[in-house]
């Protein structure tokens, strides 16, 4: 497993307590799980995603990720309607391990309340939090 100093935590995205990330793209948010989460889970074998059109509140469970012997729930970092899901994960769940912020994204959300994004952590705050938990 990676040391905290080895984690890739880009500064152009925001982070949630439960290790999801969010990036603003136009009027939408793209989200997935971050480098810390994918590293902790190990080889990801399946991602269960919601359907386009489903709506969730901030912090609601919207997906599950599975490794061989564990299942983890994922919580939507901002509330809104799902406008797209990453169907490539069906065939290639390993994308989450290889490229958590790129090809391994989970869903796209039409944001209800832009202030919810601002309330998420910056990479600096998040790094501090991870160090604190160590």
């Amino acid at each position: 497993m990676k040391k905290i100093s080895e984690l890739d935590l880009p500064d152009d995205i925001r982070y949630a307590e439960d290790h999801e990330w969010a990036r603003l793209e136009g009027d939408k948010i793209r989200t997935g799980i971050d480098d810390y989460a994918q590293d902790q889970l190990g080889d990801i074998v399946f991602v269960e995603l919601p359907q386009v059109g489903d709506t969730f509140k901030k912090g609601e469970e919207f997906a599950t990720v599975e490794s061989v012997k564990a299942v983890s729930e994922c919580y939507l970092p901002v509330g809104g309607e799902i406008t797209a899901v990453n169907t490539a994960l069906e065939e290639s769940p390993e994308l989450v391990n290889k490229s958590p912020y790129g090809d391994g994204w989970f869903v796209e959300v039409k944001l209800n309340d832009p202030s919810e994004l601002d309330a998420l952590m910056t990479n600096k705050d998040y790094l501090e939090k991870l160090k604190g938990a160590e």
Binding site: V45, F46, E66, V68, K69, A70, V71
Partner: peptide, 12 residues
């Protein structure tokens, strides 16, 4: 596909 099963997913 053991993640479907009780010893991992328990009540779910």
């Amino acid at each position: 596909l053991a993640t479907r099963e009780q010893h991992i997913r328990r009540q779910k």
